[in-house]
């Protein structure tokens, strides 16, 4: 398992962390990490600080997460991508679509 998800103590924040490679093989796990959570106004943090590599299907998976977040009026934050991963997000101009910190 390289996808971890955790709800904060106050119940207002869901953190999903991805370790090592973020690619199509994580499709099911990634979806499972947020799909059943329908709490409104939640802050979703996608922690990429431990992600070494990300491919374009991962970008697609992030877009699906974004759709889910919007549907439940939440907020999505992409957290601490490393340089390699950030480069991929930059090429795809994802900072135009969501918050990247």
């Amino acid at each position: 398992m390289t996808v971890y998800s955790k709800i904060s103590e106050d119940g207002k924040q869901l953190t999903i962390s991805i370790e090592e490679r973020f690619d199509f093989s994580l499709h099911q796990q990634f979806r499972a990490a947020y799909h059943d959570n329908v709490t409104p106004d939640l802050t979703y943090i996608l922690d990429l600080s431990k992600t070494d590599y990300m491919d374009s299907s991962a970008l697609g998976m992030i877009l699906l997460l974004k759709d889910h977040v919007q549907l439940h009026t939440g907020t999505l934050i992409i957290d601490k991508p490393n340089d390699t991963v950030n480069k991929i997000l930059e090429i795809a101009q994802f900072h135009r679509l969501m918050t990247i910190t």
Binding site: L59, L63, E90, I91, A92, Q93, F94, R96, L97
Partner: peptide, 15 residues
């Protein structure tokens, strides 16, 4: 020419 726009098909209209 660096990427200036998200890939097509994501946003309903071009920024």
């Amino acid at each position: 020419f660096s990427s200036k726009h998200p890939p097509l098909g994501i946003l309903p209209e071009i920024l």
